[in-house]
């Protein structure tokens, strides 16, 4: 090696010690050191010794006591290339030395997503049950209506059908209706239109007017707008014989019905007029 070349390498010792050589120069310098240059090695050793004096100008301070325990625990565990333990963030617990990196937010996020899915599924299933329940209710109503229609059709198809018109009186003067009945079977249909909606604590009551007074023939309620326009109800007129019937009337009574009709009469019609 030429003297000037050795000098060049010696110039690199200071930046090498300070870690300021670029990768190319560092590699070249380390190759040179690897070749066994005693002069550069000695220079480096002296520089390292000199620079190691600088930390002595700082006042000495012991690290936290737990640090040594953690270090010795790590060494005692015999693991290869152990990771340093962050005692500050881990609350200086020695057990943290063997803990893998924690990512609690990840678990919480999964739990949260699962919770959201479960809640959404629950709501969906609940809605599904409600829909099914509502549809079952509709089916029941349609079957009832169909049964009604079949009964009405049966009455209308009877050989002898009698119809009694019902007229509206105050306070429902615009209301009207009719009783269609088969005197043989005593099955009847009451059809009304324009009656006010039944108050919650009331019912409409149908009376058969006989010579010795009115007789209860059943109660019904008009609730929906559809019912107000056109209401059908099947009734059984088994309270007497045809010749005893002088007419029909509808009154508004307390829930459960009354023993005797009270004023006012909402609808009324006579059989005599029809005969």
């Amino acid at each position: 090696m030429k003297p000037e070349e050795r000098h060049t390498h010696l110039e690199l010792c200071i930046p090498y010690v300070f870690g300021r050589l670029n990768p190319g120069n560092r590699k070249q310098f380390e190759t040179h050191l690897g070749s066994g240059c005693a002069e550069c090695s000695k220079e480096l050793a002296q520089l390292y010794e000199a620079m190691a004096l600088l930390p002595l100008t700082i006042h000495q301070q012991q690290p936290p006591q737990q640090l040594k325990g953690i270090l010795m625990q790590r060494i005692g565990s015999g693991k290869e290339a152990p990771e340093p333990v962050r005692i500050r963030t881990e609350q200086r617990m020695p057990d943290a030395a063997v803990s893998p990196p924690q990512r609690p937010w990840f678990g919480y996020a999964i739990a949260f997503v699962l919770l959201v899915i479960i809640v959404a599924l629950g709501i969906y299933v609940n809605d599904l049950f409600r829909t099914v329940g509502a549809q079952e209710q509709t089916i029941v109503e349609l079957r009832t209506e169909l049964a009604h229609s079949a009964e009405v059709e049966k009455i209308l198809q009877a050989r002898r059908v009698e119809i009694v018109l019902l007229n509206g009186y105050e306070p429902s003067s615009t209301a009207f209706g009719r009783i269609i009945w088969d005197p043989l079977t005593k099955n009847a249909v009451i059809q009304v239109s324009g009656l006010p909606a039944t108050p919650d604590d009331k019912v409409y009551q149908l009376w058969v007017v006989k010579r010795d007074g009115p007789v209860n023939a059943g109660v019904f309620t008009v609730t929906s707008e559809k019912d107000r326009k056109n209401f059908f109800e099947l009734v059984s007129l088994t309270v007497g014989e045809r010749y005893e019937f002088e007419g029909f009337m509808v009154t508004l009574e307390s829930k459960g019905g009354a023993a005797q009709p009270t004023e006012p009469k909402y609808l009324m019609g006579t059989t005599k007029a029809q005969q």
């Binding site: 930390p55 002595l56 700082i58 000495q60 301070q61 012991q62």
Partner: peptide, 8 residues
């Protein structure tokens, strides 16, 4: 040496 390395 930890009392030197730590403040360093």
């Amino acid at each position: 040496y930890s009392p030197v390395l730590y403040p360093l």
